[in-house]
Nucleic acid binder design. Structure first.
Lengths: 199, 199
DNA sequence: ACCTGAACACCGTTCAAGT
DNA sequence: ACCTGAACACCGTTCAAGT
């Protein structure tokens, strides 16, 4: 049993987040509880509340780590591509791949709803911005002039769309679609979207 | 306190689903529990398990009612429109409206993940099919010949996309988008998508 | 036959009390 | 000062026992 001063607050926080991610990956979101995390790191439940305001805050920190991991994953996997169209398809496929491979983290990332429609913390929004930034970089050359706002908007619309395809497919809400794979759907979206964008 | 034979199994089921919807609308998904529903209809928890296999099954039944309500809402609100483009915009706006007005039902509808990637029940998939059917009807005239499969696919891709915009916006994942509303995003999607579809 | 209610194994959150 | 652990108010699910 851990004793006082064995670890700093920061250390406890890190241990807790690591334990949480393992529980999530191995046993799913349902098994992720404050009590479980605490016992996994050798502390009492009470201790977790010295380090996180409540469960939601702990989940938001897990989600920040997920966003970091996903941003890196996307950057790596979409590095080499010739045309904007190919870059977008690569990004979409990397996104879908990540969602499949890390389903539990991905679900937690998007299911978590902030209490009473508060805004999300800054460090959370900043990471979301980086995700959209990767799409913006691909779309920017297609828009003549430097209409940044329009590129930002298109990136969000397109990425929200890829996200919708991904989430509905993973949750079996896209029945009877003629056996189309998630990747084919994303390609169809991207091709049609690009036909209208930047002309 | 209700006594035995006061109500048939079907009646208990109906009472439970009504109570569940009220709890959901008034207090949110967090407050929705088997114990709470049971006490609301004057029965004991155990009784609910005579009528539903478990909590997931109860939620699936609630979701079926939500899908019925949403299908009706969409049919009514998108009845009058001149061009396919307008019809799609109407449908999208009706969809977004429903999601905002009945957020708790809408969240429960899409967050619920079937245990161990089972397929959803037939009566559930049938209702999802009707939802996509409304989009197919609008897209069909745009595709020459009778390429039904292609229309089905496009309807699913487009609707999943609208769904993605809707869910990310409601959950505050679309920060820094130049103040674009959900409706404007849906329009941008539809206009760009149609530019590539059916040409 | 129908339903209860107690039991089991869990939750999140708080806070007086111990070291 | 730091952490505990017991308390409070809940969960889902099961099933022997009562009417």
């Amino acid at each position: 049993m851990a004793r006082r001063s064995d670890h700093s607050r920061e250390e406890i926080k890190e241990m807790a987040l690591n334990a949480a991610q393992e529980i999530l990956d191995r046993e799913g979101a349902k098994k992720l509880s404050a009590r479980r995390v605490a016992s996994e790191i050798g502390y009492t439940v009470g201790t977790l509340y010295l380090v996180f305001k409540n469960q939601l805050e702990m989940v938001l920190h897990i989600n920040a780590l997920t966003l970091d991991e996903m941003n890196e994953w996307l950057a790596e996997r979409s590095a080499s591509c010739d045309s904007p169209r190919d870059c977008l398809v690569n990004l979409a496929e990397a996104y879908i791949d990540y969602a499949i491979k890390k389903q539990e983290r991905w679900n937690l990332l998007f299911d978590t709803v902030a209490e009473g429609e508060e805004r999300l913390p800054d460090w959370y929004e900043e990471r979301l911005g980086r995700l959209f930034g990767q799409v913006e970089q691909v779309l920017a050359p297609l828009k003549s002039g430097h209409d940044e706002i329009e590129v930002q908007r298109a990136a969000r619309v397109l990425w929200a769309s890829v996200h919708g395809i991904c989430t509905l497919k993973l949750r079996h809400r896209l029945v009877l679609a003629g056996g189309q794979s998630t990747e084919e759907m994303a390609q169809m979206l991207i091709d049609n979207f690009l036909a209208g964008f930047g002309q």
